[in-house]
């Protein structure tokens, strides 16, 4: 094989255009900025899970553990007087990353069910710990008094959410770039190999566990940064950042968009937020019912999520026009 397996993937014009959509949204929906900010944070969280689940195939029921850790790390740092946002974000990512590294060793053992239980158990342990450590986390009342200083010393976090919007946008773009580089690197290729056939990859000499541990740590770090972003932009941390429901929610977001293709997380976050807004608009209390229904239908009829549907349609169209070359996926 003369051609290298992995060439640096050029950015498609469509991809650049995709990331201009939030910029357009900034001017189109000036009253919904906090919502869009939250959407972008959710998207980043889902992308971090995509690395772990979509690319490495680790089914986690406790990814919120890292999101929550990051949120509390950034929040507590700011509450204790270190309000500089960027270093707070780095701190959030570092704390979540270290815990991810330590717990990742445990997660690698056993079957899918064992992994599920260990990730769930670790998530619940952190939830209980945060619940009981009133003096540090504020317990069930949430973390009060988070004071975040102006971004870069110049941009105050304003009441309209302008700064928060651009801050979250920058976070999403930068980390998405990192994730994109990662999955298109030889490392990312290895991960996909492991997901497809673990035994064969180890027979080829790939250090399977080391790779899985690395991607789990990176995923934890990104989730932590997403949590830190949430804490800093809302200047509040509530206990539910660590809850099981949040872990389930991010799974849903990713499955909704389509796992294993990075953009799935973002599309899923948009679809989920819109769905949430619309559904809870006419049934405030029972929107969970519709959420469940969507999940069930999704699994029964559209396994690849929204992007999977798009792919299927595109394939059908390609068959119609008899184009020989299969169109390569964008992500």
């Amino acid at each position: 094989m003369t051609q290298p397996m992995v060439s640096p993937k050029p950015w498609w014009p469509m991809e650049v255009g995709f990331f201009l959509i939030p910029v357009a949204a900034f001017f189109l929906f000036p009253l919904h900025l906090p919502l869009i900010t939250e959407m972008m944070i959710l998207a980043l969280f889902a992308v971090s899970l995509d690395l772990v689940l979509g690319y490495a195939g680790i089914v986690s029921l406790g990814h919120a553990a890292f999101f929550g850790l990051g949120a509390y790390a950034a929040g507590i740092l700011a509450q204790q007087g270190w309000g500089e946002p960027l270093s707070g974000l780095v701190f959030a990512g570092a704390v979540a990353g270290v815990v991810g590294l330590l717990t990742g060793v445990l997660v690698l053992r056993g079957s899918d069910l064992t992994r599920l239980m260990v990730t769930l158990g670790i998530g619940m342990m952190l939830f209980e710990a945060a619940n009981k450590m009133n003096w540090l986390t504020g317990g069930a009342d949430g973390l009060q008094g988070v004071m975040v200083e102006p971004l870069l010393g110049a941009f105050q976090f304003d009441i309209f959410g302008h700064t928060a919007f651009w801050y979250a946008y920058a976070g999403l773009v930068v980390l998405f770039y990192v994730a994109r580089r990662l999955v298109h690197s030889p490392f990312g290729l290895c991960l996909r190999g492991i997901k497809t056939n673990r035994l064969r990859m180890s027979a080829l000499g790939s250090r399977v566990n080391l790779h899985l541990l690395a991607v789990y740590t990176v995923g934890a770090m990104m989730a932590g940064i997403a949590g830190g972003l949430l804490a800093q932009t809302t200047q509040f941390v509530s206990l539910d950042v660590l809850s099981f429901e949040r872990s389930a929610e991010v799974l849903l977001v990713l499955v909704l968009g389509g796992p294993g293709r990075l953009y799935g997380g973002i599309i899923g976050a948009v679809a989920f937020t819109v769905m949430h807004e619309v559904l809870s608009g006419f049934t405030t209390h029972y929107w969970q019912f519709w959420l469940g229904l969507v999940l069930v239908l999704l699994v029964l009829f559209a396994r690849g999520g929204l992007l999977g549907l798009v792919d299927a349609l595109r394939k059908r169209a390609a068959r119609g026009t008899a184009s020989a070359a299969a169109p390569e996926r964008a992500a």
């Binding site: 689940l53 089914v59 029921l61 899918d112 069910l113 599920l116 389930a248 799974l251 849903l252 499955v255 796992p259 209390h285 029972y286 929107w287 969970q288 019912f289 959420l291 469940g292 229904l293 969507v294 999940l295 069930v296 999704l298 699994v299 029964l300 396994r303």
Partner: peptide, 22 residues
């Protein structure tokens, strides 16, 4: 189906059951 699909499907059922009971 994959374990992920099974997890998602049954979580969906739980959500439906909870909202219905509510």
């Amino acid at each position: 189906a994959s374990h992920l699909d099974q997890v998602m499907f049954t979580i969906g059922l739980v959500f439906i059951a909870m909202a219905t009971a509510d």
